[in-house]
């Protein structure tokens, strides 16, 4: 960008202040790279525990992001397009998972499943009797990730629907659509980039989730261990190089996914 004479100092000031944060991000990545060696990285990535953790991370984040999108589309549409009694309350509710300390999310889930009673038993016991374990199990990992990630997906979808003029739905109705058809044939296709962005935001948020997992799903090696908990487990036994290797792996996965989504036009640069 060529600055108009006299404006150079303005843009330089912005670049210096903004650049300081960009530099911090670069330094964080470089710190991880500098602390490990290719040998340590290979050893860590070759360990069966880390490989199992990587597999669980990939699919649990995928399921959590998919579930987030499923609730974010209707909630985002309602918040963007309609006015109803209790809307302010719903908006506040959607902000709670975003601002709540992660450990509190985990604690709240733990209480829901282990202290809410259904016919004299806890929800967890009720589910256990039907063959499903949630607390300290893989389903708990997904639920903990979903609980926070969905709120971010809802925000993204609301913004997406707010940017699509409601007039296109109106025209679709006059052309012969029912409200469902207008949504399916016009609104949803127009929202596809936003949906991809919401999915990615939810996926990335799930990848980094740790607090609720620690409390609600535990960090049992090989069972409920995802990459964020692998970093914690490696650190807790004093293997800093293992923790750094897993951190680098998470950075690498996150960058690959963000690049894939950006190249497909999901998030506008």
């Amino acid at each position: 960008m060529k600055a108009v004479p006299g404006e150079r100092s303005f843009y330089v000031a912005l670049a210096v202040i903004g650049g300081a944060y960009a530099l911090l991000v670069v330094l964080m990545i470089l710190a991880n790279v500098a602390y490990t060696t290719p040998g340590q990285l290979t050893a860590a990535l070759g360990s069966p525990e880390i490989q199992a953790s990587m597999r669980l991370t990939l699919w649990s984040c995928l399921v959590a992001a998919a579930l987030s999108l499923i609730v974010a589309v209707p909630l985002g549409y309602l918040l963007a397009r309609t006015n109803f009694r209790g809307k302010a309350l719903l908006e506040a509710l959607m902000d709670i998972p975003v601002v709540l300390p992660p450990l509190v999310v985990g604690l709240s889930l733990l209480i829901i499943f282990n202290h809410f009673r259904i016919g004299g038993t806890s929800l967890e016991q009720w589910l256990n009797a039907r063959g499903l374990r949630v607390t300290f199990a893989v389903a708990g990992v997904v639920l903990a990730q979903f609980s926070v990630a969905a709120a971010f997906a809802v925000r993204t979808m609301r913004g997406t629907f707010e940017q699509i003029p409601s007039r296109v739905d109106d025209v679709a109705l006059t052309l012969g659509c029912t409200r469902w058809q207008a949504f399916r044939l016009v609104t949803l296709p127009l929202a596809r980039r936003g949906m991809l962005a919401a999915f990615t935001v939810a996926w990335a948020r799930s990848l980094g989730e740790f607090g609720p997992l620690l409390i609600f799903a535990g960090t049992t090696r090989g069972r409920t261990e995802v990459l964020s908990s692998s970093v914690f487990l490696e650190l807790s036994v004093g293997r800093l190089e293992g923790a750094v290797a897993v951190s680098l792996l998470m950075i690498f996965i996150a960058i690959i996914v963000l690049m894939l989504v950006r190249s497909s036009g999901g998030i506008r640069s």
């Binding site: 003029p165 109106d170 025209v171 679709a172 006059t174 659509c177 058809q181 044939l185 016009v186 596809r192």
Partner: peptide
Amino acid sequence: AARMVGYVPQDLALFSHLTVRENLGFALNV
């Protein structure tokens, strides 16, 4: 949908994800 009214709003509200052919054929399809 049942009123059989053709409507052109001020901002046109063309369906940007569809080609001109698909825009023209939208009502016929539906």
